[in-house]
Design a binder for these strands. Structure first.
Lengths: 188, 188
DNA sequence: TCGGTTTTGTCGGTTTTTCAACAGAATACA
DNA sequence: TGTATTCTGTTGAAAAACCGACAAAACCGA
């Protein structure tokens, strides 16, 4: 991709992310975003049809980075692993302001859905890979159960004023997930 | 100035500054600078005729920032003052890597001259303003004396491995300068 | 509710940057 | 020393971003 496009798009998205960290999304204007990104207003319109389109693409990009961060660093590393979970949560902590704001009550409701959908896919993948003998209904319920739990914990962790470190939350969440996996193995 | 020019020029200069902090200037290639700045190689040539021209402009810009940093923040502040000296040395400390490298033996010999010239001007200005009754020769010698001393102390401070904090060096240097001023006043 | 201000989305002309290609110079290395 | 690789400086065409201006929409305070 052209160097100019890449640089401007990241500048624009960063500007929006930081602004979301400061004020309600509805109160943010394209002018502000352009000014913050140090980019001509027209440039924003050349990439995004409007504020909401920009938000969409921005959330998408964030989720993409999130997925990247949790994928294995090399082939030898098993997946999922505690360290991949740590990387992912670390990534979220780095942009805590952003995630806190989009996940909060007055945030971006659709983001929670996107995030959960993403996690659902990962969970489903694991279930299929582990060859757990479950019928369709139980499988769907399990996916819903685990993904809700994970998103809920993440949301709590980010929204509360620093309840614990990344390492701690990773440890706890990972052991809960391991526990659930054991239950399933014993049942099947 | 066009937004694109401004952004690219600062990116290019920052790239060079950081590279100077890492390796000998002669070993640095235009390709490296372009890569580091995330800019097309041709863009560099559109602003600077070659590596040396870029270095010149870069040093110039640095000195300009230095002058800006030492000028008074408002009209009420006297000049020069201990706090203006502190700001200036603080600015140099922030880019310690850069200044260390350009001032070092294998650095950029011309930079030392530029810096001293700049300081000479400031010193001369002070002498004129204070209306010290000195003949031309004594004036020139005094300027040379003080500016050499100042540059020498700065060089020593930056080159040695952290001999003392900005506050300390400011305190010491300022009192030396004050002392010299008193001598002059009593003589005239 | 009115009138003034701000924001939005779009446009056309201009400037800058990008990319790819080039030949020649310099450098590395075997 | 000769060869291969990298670096340099330049070019031209295409893409992108710039700026300023515009009318319409949205917003805001009196």
């Amino acid at each position: 991709m052209d160097r100019r496009i890449k640089k401007n798009q990241t500048a624009i998205m960063n500007a929006l992310i930081h602004l979301i960290g400061e004020k309600d999304f509805e109160k943010i204007t394209i002018n502000e975003i352009a000014e913050r990104a140090d980019v001509n207003r027209g440039t924003i319109y050349s990439h995004y049809s409007d504020k909401y389109d920009l938000l969409d693409k921005c959330l998408e990009a964030h989720l993409y980075h999130l997925i990247e961060s949790c994928s294995s660093v090399d082939e030898t590393e098993p997946y999922p692993s505690k360290s991949s979970l740590l990387r992912t949560l670390g990534q979220m902590e780095k942009n805590a302001l952003f995630y806190r704001n989009v996940l909060s009550n007055k945030g971006i409701p659709s983001f929670r859905n996107h995030l959960q959908k993403m996690i659902s896919n990962q969970v489903m993948e694991q279930i299929v890979e582990n060859n757990l003998s479950l019928n369709e209904l139980s499988k769907d319920i399990l996916v819903q159960f685990l993904s809700s739990a994970i998103v809920g914990v993440i949301e709590w962790w980010l929204t509360q004023p620093m309840p614990c470190s990344v390492e701690e939350i990773t440890e706890q969440l990972w052991s809960l997930l391991e526990h659930n996996q054991m239950i399933l193995r014993s049942e099947s």
